Amino acid sequence: MTSRTNSGTSSSTAVRTATDADWPAIWPIFDEIVRAGETYAFPIDLTIDTARPWWMTDHVVVLEEEGAVLGSAKMGPNRPGRGAHVGTASFMVDPAARGRGVGRRLGEHVVQWHRAAGFAGIQFNAVVETNTVAVRLWQDLGFEIVGTVPRAFDHPTHGRVGLHVMYLEL
């Protein structure tokens, strides 16, 4: 893998709204995570063009450091119509940037964005139970596991594992 990050940390990190020009920097992160098959149920044969509509929807942000995209999140209503008062979000962090607080910064941004937009809560529909780092992060940010769908995710090494539904009332 070619690193898309700089070594070390910097105070010049920022979460900002993504633009169309960011997709080429988001794509390698998306592709690596989806192909790993450990956290998302997206089709694994997506290309840069066919993957774009899966991610570049709703409101998308990136966390960048000195011009390098370290992660991205997309957010918006969980359901249309009568369910639109509850939001949702998805996150991808460059594997080379893990352990640097990128997910936490994106998560905090997403919570604040939903609050400011007037959502009543945030529901994550499918957090893979073996993704313990993410589960712990969401719990640290106040999310609760409200249910687990058993054996709903086909993990490449653990086999069929549960998907947590997590919720944060705002």
Rank of each mutant, 00 (worst) to 15 (best):
98 R>G: 00
103 G>A: 13
103 G>Y: 02
97 A>T: 03
126 A>V: 04
109 H>Q: 11
94 D>P: 11
109 H>N: 13
84 A>D: 14
79 R>S: 04
106 L>D: 09
124 F>W: 14
114 H>Q: 13
124 F>S: 03
105 R>H: 10
94 D>Q: 10
129 E>L: 06
110 V>I: 07
79 R>F: 14
111 V>L: 06
91 F>L: 11
129 E>W: 07
109 H>M: 12
74 K>C: 12
101 G>E: 09
112 Q>F: 11
130 T>N: 05
73 A>W: 02
125 N>T: 11
85 H>L: 12
127 V>S: 06
84 A>W: 08
95 P>D: 05
102 V>D: 01
107 G>Q: 10
86 V>G: 07
131 N>S: 07
98 R>Y: 01
119 F>S: 04
117 A>C: 08
82 R>S: 15
124 F>K: 01
125 N>S: 12
127 V>Y: 06
80 P>I: 12
96 A>N: 11
79 R>D: 05
76 G>Q: 09
84 A>C: 15
101 G>L: 10
107 G>H: 13
119 F>V: 05
100 R>H: 12
101 G>M: 10
130 T>F: 04
77 P>C: 07
105 R>T: 15
112 Q>Y: 09
90 S>Q: 01
91 F>H: 04
126 A>E: 03
90 S>D: 01
98 R>N: 01
85 H>E: 11
108 E>A: 14
80 P>G: 13
124 F>L: 15
108 E>Y: 13
127 V>F: 08
95 P>H: 06
129 E>N: 07
122 I>H: 10
100 R>W: 05
98 R>I: 00
119 F>G: 01
80 P>H: 12
97 A>V: 05
129 E>F: 09
129 E>K: 06
128 V>R: 00
77 P>T: 03
77 P>H: 01
76 G>W: 06
78 N>I: 02
105 R>Q: 15
127 V>R: 04
111 V>P: 00
88 T>W: 00
119 F>L: 11
131 N>R: 04
104 R>M: 13
104 R>A: 14
93 V>A: 04
93 V>P: 00
82 R>F: 15
131 N>M: 07
113 W>V: 06
119 F>E: 02
96 A>R: 09
116 A>P: 01
127 V>N: 05
121 G>L: 03
98 R>W: 02
121 G>E: 06
73 A>V: 07
100 R>K: 10
107 G>R: 06
76 G>H: 10
115 R>T: 10
130 T>M: 05
122 I>W: 09
120 A>S: 14
92 M>H: 06
107 G>L: 12
75 M>Y: 15
81 G>E: 11
113 W>Q: 07
128 V>L: 02
76 G>K: 07
96 A>Q: 12
121 G>Q: 04
84 A>S: 15
97 A>M: 08
87 G>N: 02
122 I>M: 12
116 A>S: 13
120 A>D: 14
85 H>G: 08
132 T>L: 06
108 E>H: 15
104 R>N: 14
77 P>F: 00
